[in-house]
Amino acid sequence: MNRPDPALIQILGELSSGAVSVEAAADLIAASQRDTSAIANVEGATVDLGRADRCGFGEVIYGEGKSTELIQRIAQAQLDAGQSCLVTRIDPTAAAQVRRNFAFIHHNPLARTLRIGLTSESLKPPKLDAGQPHVAVVTAGSTDHCIAEEAVETLAWMNVPYSRFEDIGVAGPQRLLGVVGEIRRASAVVVIAGMEGALPAAVAGHVASMVIAVPTSSGYGAHFNGLTPLMGMLTSCAANVAVVNIDAGFKGGFLAGIIASGLAAAKTPVTQ
């Protein structure tokens, strides 16, 4: 005789005790029965369709070095599975070709991203309501704008609300002090900086949330194309700073988005 599924027993126990509603229990049971190892074999790629159920968000398509045909095959497999798509580091020519083949698509040339949705509504930026968990995206200088755009497009794909604070680097400290009250409201902060990379530590000293530091490749010779701010951020005295790779706006946005989405899920009330 087959033994009962322990996860199913737990869900039914929580339903019996009133810890979860009937609707929530149904969702949990459906989730427990999904095939989280699902894949789609397309020419040139093995698409991980189970990642959304395992990790909360689907597979992201890294566009650099991929043909437009391959990008389209991967995206179509995701759409067929009911998943929206994010393509990063895609050049303008490839983006223009891909755009002709999908109904609902948003291209951000500064971010070098494409978002491909199931509906036009899914491409709209998430609405930021008061008190809602969200991410603040902060740039030190205007030259960091394109990396911030990649972070913002990532958050939009994740449906995580965000606020933006631009050009508030440490060369003008009054600029940070003027907005720090607003930044404190965020559940996580992405700070993008080149040059010496000092801004993440300065922001971190003002907030109780995680600061995801993104070093950029903008700067002069001794900046070493981003190595100087990377090393500075890694050796930050501020304990709440975590660092991603040079120019990695996607990674910074994704990590902060996970934090905010997790807090949003924890705050969702359970209806009895």
Rank of each mutant, 00 (worst) to 15 (best):
G18M: 12
I259K: 10
T216K: 07
H106D: 09
T139C: 04
E150V: 01
G65M: 07
G232K: 05
G253A: 10
A38T: 08
P161C: 11
A45N: 05
R54G: 09
V244S: 06
L234Q: 15
A156G: 06
L123P: 14
A45H: 11
A103M: 09
I39W: 00
E153R: 00
F102Y: 08
V191E: 01
R51M: 04
P126Y: 06
A19F: 10
V135N: 01
F250C: 03
D167K: 12
L176G: 07
I183V: 13
G141A: 06
A264S: 14
S218D: 03
A151V: 02
F250R: 04
T93M: 13
A202G: 01
S163T: 12
G44H: 07
V190Q: 05
N225E: 15
A208M: 09
K251G: 10
I11H: 00
L176I: 11
T113R: 01
L8N: 08
R175C: 09
G44E: 01
S236H: 09
I246R: 04
D129R: 14
V211K: 06
V152I: 15
L234A: 10
V138H: 07
A171P: 04
P6W: 10
A96Q: 15
L255P: 05
Q272M: 08
A238T: 06
G172W: 04
V243H: 02
I9P: 01
T68F: 14
E166N: 14
T113W: 01
V180M: 11
V87Y: 07
I39G: 00
K127H: 07
A81K: 04
I183G: 07
R34W: 01
V152A: 10
N225S: 12
A238I: 08
Q76F: 00
D35P: 00
S84V: 06
I259V: 15
G56R: 05
T68K: 08
V214H: 08
R34P: 10
E14S: 13
G221T: 06
A38C: 05
Q72A: 01
D247F: 04
A208N: 12
Q83L: 13
A24L: 15
M1S: 14
L230P: 14
A202N: 00
Q174I: 01
P6G: 03
E153M: 12
V179K: 12
A256P: 09
G221E: 11
D80A: 05
S218G: 07
I74K: 02
Q83T: 04
I183L: 10
E149L: 02
L176P: 04
L12R: 14
I116C: 12
T154Y: 11
V179S: 05
A25S: 15
P229R: 10
P269M: 14
F104I: 04
F57R: 03
I9S: 05
T139N: 03
L79Q: 03
A156Y: 00
V244A: 08
A186S: 12
R112N: 11
A75F: 10
F102T: 03
V191D: 00
A265N: 15
A96S: 15
R3M: 13
D129H: 14
R112H: 10
L155N: 02
